[in-house]
Computed example of a mutant assay.
Amino acid sequence: MTVTIGNHVLGGGHPVYVIAEIGLNHNGDVELAKRLIDVAANAGANAVKFQKRTPEIATPVHMRDTPRDTPWGTMTYLEYRYRVEFNREQYVEIGDYATMRGLDWFASPWDVPSVDFLEDLGVVAHKVASASLTDVELLEALRATGKPVILSTGMSTIDQIDRALEVLGTDRTVLMHATSTYPMEPEEANIKMIASLRDRYAGIPVGYSGHERGLQISLAAVSLGAVAVERHITLDRTMWGSDHAASLEPAGLEHLVRDIRVIETALGDGVKRIYDGELAPMAKLRRVPA
């Protein structure tokens, strides 16, 4: 089965769909978001993704009054969430800019009003963050949009994934294997789960959402058949914010996309043949003809 997002087809032997997750790494700054969109476009990514919250709904009650040191001073966690959230006008600006740069754009809505907000802006798909996989009300709202849904499976059990798919359906869903540690260590990657998910949910395209340092694990995921790869991006991993350390800098994203395309070419079709480049060495080195 394949799923179409924008002008791209995921699965069925089509090229890997590369999602550059900006998330909250824009730190509430539209110009920084645009610079990150440029990074994604220049590297050859297919899409950029953001996160959309209605802070008073999406922020857990026990976290709301927790003090947080920020570049704008000490504030509560709820105040911080409001500070980095883009409004409609800002989303129109960055969405138009992403489209102008040839990228799909969408977001992870963390609550039902955010689904309505993104639908009003005409996003081509929705992403379910791993933390939201058990939010049945949110999943029902996403199913009702009729749009493709990319479902990350970090911090979740197989039973929880089963229930999420019962709500979402399987006809427009892409699963993303993920481990929700920031940054993730290799021993927690478990990328053989890509095959396990593909076997259990036959027909659903399976990709990989990574939070590791470096490129090796994401590239190995492609070799194991991931149809999509999502990585956080930043201008500088030392910037303030919770996701920067687990993000790729511009050169890293460029190398990731380059190497994914090389691996796609190298995987071939699994049919044994003699290539033209082998004929001269064969004539020179093979002593006993077939």
Rank of each mutant, 00 (worst) to 15 (best):
Q51R: 01
R261P: 11
A202N: 08
S223N: 02
F117A: 02
A58K: 14
H8P: 04
A246K: 08
D29Y: 02
G95I: 04
A245C: 09
A41V: 07
P183V: 08
F86L: 12
N87Q: 03
R172E: 05
L215S: 11
R198F: 06
V222A: 14
T59D: 06
E254T: 15
V167C: 07
P148L: 06
A125Y: 02
K147L: 13
R172K: 15
R64I: 09
L36A: 06
Y201H: 12
L215W: 09
R261H: 13
V271R: 03
A245H: 13
M100W: 10
P289Q: 11
H232A: 14
E249Q: 07
V115E: 00
I263V: 15
D116L: 13
S114V: 04
H211C: 14
K192I: 07
Q90D: 05
V3N: 00
G6Y: 08
D159F: 11
L24A: 13
R35P: 03
K192Y: 01
H126C: 00
Y17W: 11
R53M: 10
D269W: 04
D199W: 03
L133N: 07
D69F: 05
V257Q: 06
G12S: 12
R237M: 12
A47E: 12
L285V: 15
V48K: 07
I5F: 12
A266K: 13
Q51E: 08
G95N: 00
E188H: 15
M63S: 14
D69M: 14
Q51G: 05
I161D: 00
A129I: 03
T2A: 09
L224N: 06
M1D: 15
S132H: 14
A125I: 04
N46K: 08
G95W: 03
H244R: 07
T153P: 10
F106G: 09
M184L: 15
T181G: 13
A131F: 10
V167R: 08
K52M: 14
N25F: 00
E137N: 01
N42W: 10
V262G: 07
L10Q: 05
R287C: 09
N25R: 01
H177D: 08
T170V: 11
M239A: 12
A131R: 03
W110G: 12
S114Q: 08
L133S: 09
A107I: 02
E212R: 13
V206S: 07
G203H: 11
I94D: 07
L142H: 00
A246C: 14
G6Q: 10
Y182I: 15
V92K: 03
T70D: 12
V123Q: 01
G122P: 01
R213G: 10
D69P: 10
L139F: 03
I191C: 10
F106Y: 12
A98T: 08
R273N: 00
L168F: 10
L279D: 09
T54Q: 04
T179L: 13
W72Y: 10
F106C: 07
Q216W: 11
D38Q: 06
T2Y: 04
L197G: 14
L253G: 12
E264L: 02
R83Y: 11
M1R: 15
H255Y: 04
V229C: 09
E140A: 13
G146L: 11
V112E: 13
H62G: 05
M1G: 15
A125S: 09
L279R: 08
G44C: 10
T179F: 15
G207L: 03
D111H: 07
